[in-house]
Amino acid sequence: MGELGLGRSKLKGSPEQELRIVLLGLDNAGKTTLLKRLASEEVSTITPTQGFNIKSVHSHGLKLNVWDIGGQRSIRPYWKKYLGSTDLLIYVIDSADQKRFEETGQELAELTEDESLTGVPLLVFANKQDLVTAAPAAEIAEGLSLHTYRDREWQIQACSALSGEGVQDGMNWISSQIINRKK
Protein backbone atom coordinates (compact mmCIF):
# COMPACT_ATOMS: atom_id res chain seq x y z
CA MET A 1 0.00 0.00 0.00
CA GLY A 2 1.00 3.57 -0.53
CA GLU A 3 1.74 6.47 1.71
CA LEU A 4 -1.76 7.15 2.86
CA GLY A 5 -1.97 4.11 5.00
CA LEU A 6 -5.04 2.82 3.25
CA GLY A 7 -5.50 -0.82 4.05
CA ARG A 8 -3.83 -0.34 7.40
CA SER A 9 -7.04 0.82 9.04
CA LYS A 10 -5.67 4.17 10.13
CA LEU A 11 -8.60 6.23 8.99
CA LYS A 12 -11.33 4.69 11.04
CA GLY A 13 -9.86 5.28 14.44
CA SER A 14 -11.95 2.58 16.07
CA PRO A 15 -11.18 1.97 19.74
CA GLU A 16 -11.00 -1.78 19.32
CA GLN A 17 -7.86 -3.42 18.03
CA GLU A 18 -8.61 -5.07 14.69
CA LEU A 19 -6.83 -8.15 13.47
CA ARG A 20 -6.83 -9.94 10.19
CA ILE A 21 -7.08 -13.71 10.38
CA VAL A 22 -7.04 -15.96 7.34
CA LEU A 23 -8.79 -19.32 7.51
CA LEU A 24 -7.48 -21.89 5.02
CA GLY A 25 -7.48 -25.62 4.39
CA LEU A 26 -8.59 -28.17 1.79
CA ASP A 27 -12.13 -28.26 0.47
CA ASN A 28 -14.56 -29.96 2.84
CA ALA A 29 -12.26 -29.41 5.82
CA GLY A 30 -15.00 -27.38 7.54
CA LYS A 31 -13.66 -23.83 7.21
CA THR A 32 -16.99 -22.13 6.61
CA THR A 33 -18.65 -24.19 9.34
CA LEU A 34 -15.92 -23.11 11.72
CA LEU A 35 -16.32 -19.49 10.64
CA LYS A 36 -20.03 -19.61 11.27
CA ARG A 37 -19.48 -21.36 14.56
CA LEU A 38 -17.10 -18.57 15.59
CA ALA A 39 -19.72 -16.00 14.65
CA SER A 40 -22.41 -17.96 16.55
CA GLU A 41 -24.43 -18.55 13.41
CA GLU A 42 -26.45 -21.49 12.14
CA VAL A 43 -24.12 -24.23 10.81
CA SER A 44 -26.59 -26.69 9.30
CA THR A 45 -26.87 -25.36 5.75
CA ILE A 46 -23.38 -24.83 4.40
CA THR A 47 -22.44 -25.37 0.77
CA PRO A 48 -18.96 -25.53 -0.78
CA THR A 49 -17.45 -22.05 -0.92
CA GLN A 50 -16.71 -20.83 -4.43
CA GLY A 51 -15.37 -17.46 -3.36
CA PHE A 52 -14.78 -16.24 0.16
CA ASN A 53 -16.56 -15.19 3.34
CA ILE A 54 -15.64 -12.58 5.92
CA LYS A 55 -16.93 -12.29 9.44
CA SER A 56 -15.98 -10.26 12.44
CA VAL A 57 -15.60 -12.09 15.71
CA HIS A 58 -15.28 -10.25 18.99
CA SER A 59 -13.10 -12.03 21.49
CA HIS A 60 -11.23 -10.81 24.57
CA GLY A 61 -11.70 -7.17 23.58
CA LEU A 62 -10.30 -7.81 20.11
CA LYS A 63 -12.07 -7.54 16.79
CA LEU A 64 -11.01 -10.45 14.65
CA ASN A 65 -11.80 -10.09 10.97
CA VAL A 66 -11.75 -13.67 9.76
CA TRP A 67 -11.41 -14.38 6.04
CA ASP A 68 -12.52 -17.85 4.94
CA ILE A 69 -11.43 -18.62 1.40
CA GLY A 70 -12.70 -21.58 -0.61
CA GLY A 71 -10.44 -24.64 -0.52
CA GLN A 72 -11.17 -26.35 -3.82
CA ARG A 73 -8.10 -27.12 -5.85
CA SER A 74 -9.06 -24.62 -8.54
CA ILE A 75 -9.35 -21.82 -5.98
CA ARG A 76 -6.14 -22.53 -4.06
CA PRO A 77 -3.97 -20.46 -6.44
CA TYR A 78 -5.95 -17.42 -5.25
CA TRP A 79 -5.03 -17.99 -1.61
CA LYS A 80 -1.86 -15.98 -1.83
CA LYS A 81 -3.83 -12.86 -2.78
CA TYR A 82 -5.37 -12.89 0.68
CA LEU A 83 -2.25 -13.40 2.76
CA GLY A 84 -1.03 -9.80 2.88
CA SER A 85 -0.94 -8.12 6.33
CA THR A 86 -2.30 -11.23 8.01
CA ASP A 87 -1.91 -11.37 11.79
CA LEU A 88 -2.67 -15.03 12.23
CA LEU A 89 -3.29 -18.11 10.11
CA ILE A 90 -5.87 -20.75 10.96
CA TYR A 91 -5.47 -23.99 9.05
CA VAL A 92 -8.34 -26.48 9.16
CA ILE A 93 -7.93 -30.21 8.59
CA ASP A 94 -10.58 -32.90 8.18
CA SER A 95 -9.22 -35.37 10.71
CA ALA A 96 -11.26 -38.20 9.23
CA ASP A 97 -9.99 -37.76 5.67
CA GLN A 98 -6.81 -39.78 6.09
CA LYS A 99 -6.42 -40.21 2.35
CA ARG A 100 -5.73 -36.50 1.94
CA PHE A 101 -3.38 -35.96 4.88
CA GLU A 102 -0.46 -35.78 2.51
CA GLU A 103 -2.19 -33.27 0.24
CA THR A 104 -3.18 -31.03 3.11
CA GLY A 105 0.34 -31.24 4.52
CA GLN A 106 1.79 -30.11 1.21
CA GLU A 107 -0.58 -27.16 0.98
CA LEU A 108 0.27 -26.08 4.52
CA ALA A 109 4.00 -26.41 3.87
CA GLU A 110 3.64 -24.27 0.76
CA LEU A 111 1.68 -21.64 2.67
CA THR A 112 4.18 -21.37 5.48
CA GLU A 113 6.90 -20.70 2.92
CA ASP A 114 5.04 -17.65 1.65
CA GLU A 115 6.81 -14.42 2.42
CA SER A 116 3.71 -12.61 3.67
CA LEU A 117 3.26 -15.25 6.37
CA THR A 118 6.77 -15.11 7.77
CA GLY A 119 6.60 -15.34 11.54
CA VAL A 120 2.78 -15.32 11.53
CA PRO A 121 1.37 -17.57 14.30
CA LEU A 122 -0.35 -20.72 13.10
CA LEU A 123 -3.33 -22.46 14.64
CA VAL A 124 -4.20 -25.86 13.20
CA PHE A 125 -7.70 -27.10 13.89
CA ALA A 126 -7.92 -30.90 13.76
CA ASN A 127 -11.58 -30.74 12.85
CA LYS A 128 -14.38 -33.32 12.72
CA GLN A 129 -13.41 -35.01 15.98
CA ASP A 130 -17.07 -35.94 16.30
CA LEU A 131 -16.48 -38.64 13.67
CA VAL A 132 -15.30 -42.03 14.99
CA THR A 133 -12.73 -42.34 12.21
CA ALA A 134 -11.06 -39.05 13.12
CA ALA A 135 -7.32 -39.21 13.78
CA PRO A 136 -6.18 -37.70 17.10
CA ALA A 137 -4.59 -34.24 17.00
CA ALA A 138 -1.20 -35.52 18.12
CA GLU A 139 -1.03 -37.90 15.19
CA ILE A 140 -1.89 -35.14 12.75
CA ALA A 141 0.70 -32.83 14.28
CA GLU A 142 3.29 -35.48 13.71
CA GLY A 143 2.14 -36.06 10.14
CA LEU A 144 2.47 -32.35 9.45
CA SER A 145 5.89 -32.20 11.18
CA LEU A 146 4.65 -29.22 13.13
CA HIS A 147 7.48 -29.68 15.65
CA THR A 148 9.96 -28.64 12.97
CA TYR A 149 8.43 -25.14 12.76
CA ARG A 150 10.91 -22.93 14.57
CA ASP A 151 10.24 -19.48 13.19
CA ARG A 152 6.65 -19.13 14.35
CA GLU A 153 4.34 -19.91 17.22
CA TRP A 154 2.00 -22.77 16.44
CA GLN A 155 -0.69 -24.79 18.13
CA ILE A 156 -2.86 -27.73 17.16
CA GLN A 157 -6.35 -27.93 18.57
CA ALA A 158 -8.73 -30.86 18.26
CA CYS A 159 -12.25 -29.64 17.58
CA SER A 160 -15.63 -30.23 16.06
CA ALA A 161 -16.91 -27.16 14.26
CA LEU A 162 -20.26 -28.90 14.04
CA SER A 163 -20.72 -29.36 17.77
CA GLY A 164 -18.50 -26.46 18.75
CA GLU A 165 -16.27 -28.57 20.94
CA GLY A 166 -12.70 -27.31 21.18
CA VAL A 167 -13.39 -24.16 19.15
CA GLN A 168 -13.27 -21.85 22.15
CA ASP A 169 -9.95 -23.34 23.27
CA GLY A 170 -8.52 -22.40 19.91
CA MET A 171 -9.85 -18.86 20.23
CA ASN A 172 -8.27 -18.55 23.65
CA TRP A 173 -4.92 -19.48 22.18
CA ILE A 174 -5.36 -16.85 19.46
CA SER A 175 -6.12 -14.14 22.02
CA SER A 176 -3.15 -15.13 24.17
CA GLN A 177 -0.94 -14.94 21.10
CA ILE A 178 -2.08 -11.45 20.20
CA ILE A 179 -1.86 -10.18 23.74
CA ASN A 180 1.60 -11.67 24.20
CA ARG A 181 2.80 -10.07 21.02
CA LYS A 182 1.57 -6.65 22.09
CA LYS A 183 3.74 -6.78 25.23
Binding site: L6, G7, Q50, G51, F52, N53, Y78
Partner: peptide
Protein backbone atom coordinates in the same frame (compact mmCIF):
# COMPACT_ATOMS: atom_id res chain seq x y z
CA UNK B 1 -25.11 -12.96 -1.60
CA UNK B 2 -23.34 -13.39 1.68
CA UNK B 3 -20.48 -15.17 -0.03
CA UNK B 4 -18.17 -12.95 -2.04
CA UNK B 5 -16.88 -13.84 -5.47
CA UNK B 6 -13.16 -14.05 -6.05
CA UNK B 7 -13.49 -11.41 -8.76
CA UNK B 8 -14.53 -8.84 -6.15
CA UNK B 9 -11.01 -8.84 -4.77
CA UNK B 10 -9.49 -7.75 -8.06
CA UNK B 11 -12.01 -4.95 -8.44
CA UNK B 12 -11.45 -3.94 -4.85
CA UNK B 13 -7.73 -3.67 -5.39
CA UNK B 14 -8.32 -1.50 -8.43
CA UNK B 15 -10.55 0.71 -6.36
CA UNK B 16 -7.94 1.02 -3.63
CA UNK B 17 -5.39 2.06 -6.22
CA UNK B 18 -7.77 4.63 -7.70
CA UNK B 19 -8.61 6.18 -4.34
CA UNK B 20 -4.99 6.27 -3.34
Amino acid sequence: EEESKLSYTEIYQEYQALVE
